[in-house]
Simulated scan of single mutants.
Amino acid sequence: MAEKKTTTKKAATETKATAAKKTTATKNAAKATVAVNAENIGFKAGDVYQTLAAAEKALSVEEIAKAAKISAEETLLGLGWLFKEGKLLGTDDNKVVLA
């Protein structure tokens, strides 16, 4: 009878671990989803611009994303928008600064 309890506890632990992994994967997938439309990208461009204006120095994509509290993908979309408008300059060290 003791063997059944041990097996059951082990199975329950494995099930909880599997469920936790699925939950994490689902959250990460939801986080990576970016609505690609002009309105959303325009808002992300505004977030990027405000972050660069507040920093008053060149920042990397990762630094902008962290400071603006948006994903790297959203940051890149915003950067593309701002580059197209001529509001940004790239630096030799892969950073971006306001033009």
Rank of each mutant, 00 (worst) to 15 (best):
M1V: 01
A2L: 11
A2F: 09
E3R: 11
E3I: 09
K4I: 10
K4W: 09
K4E: 12
K4G: 02
K5Y: 04
T6P: 04
T7C: 10
T8G: 01
K9N: 00
K9W: 06
A11W: 04
A11T: 03
T13D: 01
T15Y: 00
K16M: 01
T18G: 09
T18C: 00
A19D: 12
A20V: 07
K21D: 08
K21F: 03
K22V: 09
K22D: 07
K22C: 08
T23N: 13
A25S: 06
A25C: 02
A25V: 00
K27H: 12
K27V: 08
K27Q: 12
K27C: 05
A29S: 15
A29F: 13
A29I: 09
A29C: 04
A29T: 14
A30I: 15
V34K: 03
V34I: 11
A35R: 11
V36G: 08
V36W: 06
V36I: 14
N37E: 12
A38M: 10
A38Y: 13
N40W: 02
I41L: 10
G42C: 10
F43W: 08
K44E: 03
A45Y: 13
D47F: 05
V48E: 15
Q50I: 05
Q50C: 06
T51R: 00
A53C: 06
A54I: 07
A55E: 02
E56K: 11
K57A: 15
K57Y: 08
K57S: 14
K57V: 13
K57G: 11
A58W: 14
A58S: 13
L59N: 09
L59S: 02
S60H: 09
S60V: 11
V61F: 04
E62C: 06
E62H: 00
E63F: 04
I64G: 02
I64F: 04
A65T: 02
A65F: 01
A67T: 00
A67Y: 06
A72Q: 10
A72S: 12
E74S: 10
E74I: 05
T75Y: 02
L76S: 11
L77Y: 14
G78Q: 13
G80W: 08
G80F: 12
W81K: 15
L82N: 10
F83L: 12
K84S: 15
K87P: 11
L88Y: 09
L88N: 07
G90A: 10
D92W: 03
D93M: 02
D93T: 08
D93K: 07
N94H: 07
N94G: 04
K95P: 00
K95L: 04
V96F: 01
V97H: 03
A99Y: 01
A99E: 01
